[in-house]
Amino acid sequence: MSAYRLDYLDQLESEAIHIMREVAGQFEKPALLFSGGKDSITLVHLALKAFRPGKFPFPLVHIDTGHNFPEALQFRDELAATIGEKLVVRKVEDTIKSRQLTEPKGKFASRNALQTYTLLDTIEEFGFDACIGGARRDEEKARAKERIFSVRDEFGQWNPKLQRPELWNTYNGRISKGENVRVFPISNWTELDIWNYIKRENIALPSIYFAHERTVLEHEGQLIALSEFIQLDDTDSIVTKKVRYRTVGDMTCTAAVESSASGIDDIIREITATKTSERGETRIDDKVSEAAMEDRKKNGYF
């Protein structure tokens, strides 16, 4: 390789920084959606590279379902404090009360779909015109289709059949009042790219990403953490296993994987060898139907 040729991770990094700076240059009230998961932690790391020594031109915004892993919440607060950036937290619990929403019932009832209401309310409350998110195209087939600057209408809806053309690295962030843009700087990264980058950059993560002992409910081959948010039946099989999390969502809809990987190298080795996709292995919420993600996105989901 020539001395003036960038490694793929450097190319992806530069692309992501460029996209973040486009957001800063084009929008008046952007936000960075932050969940405490590895993808949004990577976004924060990229934002530090894009804007330091200046301040971020946006706050970190977390839509808290109330069902998060405590480790992820603690990490979120510590990270925001360490980097000295503003953190906005809005709770799904409050939206349920104020809007009299009906909570889904059942064994693994998830507030995942209700998050959309809180997100849209938060966008309206602050007047956010752009929300940066950590979605990746390799995660899911509807996401594989989405633009980097993805325009949502005043109801937060994505119209996959009428996306704006998006050429070169020229991003059109112009919108009408009420619309907003979801921006995905790490669209072109894969799960493995994220882990390799975390390793290279020595990025800290919540402890649940690494192998630990946990008491879990074994359900149709998936391991779900015991918590006050899931219903237990007498027939349930409860076991204690060494596990780690491959993704971090709600405790109700994220499954752990059996693993003894205690360090980044072990995790990269496991992911390289795995035969199952990230969401397929760990997300209960994708299993509802073939177009579950497309439908949620059309309704304003992240």
């Binding site: 390799d138 594989a144 289709k145 996959p160 059949k161 996306q163 072109n188 894969t190």
Partner: peptide, 10 residues
């Protein structure tokens, strides 16, 4: 196919 889908491999 209506719109571009991005796929990744190595």
């Amino acid at each position: 196919t209506i719109d571009v889908a991005y796929k990744y491999f190595a």
